[in-house]
Simulated assay, not measured.
Amino acid sequence: MRTLRRSIGWAAGLLLAAMTLLIIWAGVRGKPQDLPWTPLDLGAPIGMATGRKLTGLDEDFAGCRALLDRAGVRYTTLPPRRDAPRCGYDDALRLTAGGARRIALSPADVGMACPVAAAMTMWEWDVVQPAAQRTFGSPVIEIAHYGSYNCRRIAGRDVRNWSEHATADALDIAGFRLADGTRITVARDWRDGGAKAAFLHKVRDGACRLFATTLSPDYNAAHADHLHLDQASRGSIGWRACR
């Protein structure tokens, strides 16, 4: 028993020390979003805990919408939908032009789960636009995509697990259009070795900090023409996939 109590004491001490270091580190960096217990703010710089907080919105539709409201993001909520036992959504919305968002989606009528919309907002603000300005000196005005909701299994196969698209918890990004007319597509530019490829890799890497899953052409041939971004809920472990 004495050994057990000593072990518990050591574990508690290590946990306290780790929490103290995390608080100090967050204070030094000036990023409250490094701390898992601080409220999520879509307008705050991305921190170490931001991705987990965004994924956690899966169970809080009202809280997710409130975050979008506070950030000045315009949207239209969609009615719940059920197409099959494992297909449908309760928390989907459609981002609309104007307000705090300056990037249009093409097609514009795409609906997505609220946690995806919240992560998309931060991705546009903190990753996509800065990368475009640094790389090309011109902002992104449009993001092309292949859609969100689709009642199907992974890779469209009947024998595999259900896709996050089946609950509108995913969005597939095809490319970007800049204000100066430049067009960048995943299919054509991912491996060209130039500025467009560098930009695409930067926005992929940035997405990995915000989405539960980020898959690119580096993952497999099924993703040769798009970036798959989703907010899969993986329980208390919350591991993230980035490739």
Rank of each mutant, 00 (worst) to 15 (best):
A132T: 08
D83R: 08
A108N: 06
A118D: 10
R152I: 11
R81K: 13
A117Y: 02
P36S: 10
L35G: 07
R134G: 14
M120C: 02
M122I: 09
G111Y: 04
V110T: 15
A144L: 12
P107E: 03
G147P: 13
E142G: 14
L67C: 08
R82E: 02
Q133V: 05
P45E: 04
S148Q: 15
A71H: 07
T55K: 13
V128R: 01
V128W: 02
F136L: 03
R153Y: 04
A71K: 04
A71I: 02
P45L: 08
R152F: 11
A97P: 14
R70W: 12
D126S: 13
W125R: 02
A49H: 02
M122H: 07
A49N: 10
G156F: 07
D58R: 07
G137F: 10
L35C: 09
A62R: 15
L15Q: 00
L67K: 14
C151F: 01
A131R: 00
V73C: 02
K53C: 09
S138E: 03
M19G: 00
R74H: 11
R82L: 14
W25Y: 00
V128N: 01
Y75H: 00
I46P: 05
G98D: 11
A100R: 14
L95N: 03
A92L: 11
M112F: 10
L54G: 01
V110C: 09
V140A: 06
M48V: 08
E124K: 07
G63C: 01
I143S: 03
V110S: 11
V140G: 04
R52M: 06
G99Y: 02
I23F: 04
G27I: 08
P79K: 01
P80K: 02
E124Q: 04
A104M: 10
M122N: 10
G43I: 09
L21M: 12
V28C: 05
L67E: 13
D126H: 15
P139Q: 13
C151W: 02
P39G: 06
H145G: 12
S148L: 13
D83M: 13
A155S: 10
H145N: 14
V140T: 12
R102L: 15
P80L: 01
A113R: 07
T121F: 10
A131G: 04
G63Y: 04
C151I: 02
G43D: 12
P80D: 10
F61P: 09
G156L: 05
D109A: 04
A155H: 09
D90A: 11
T96N: 12
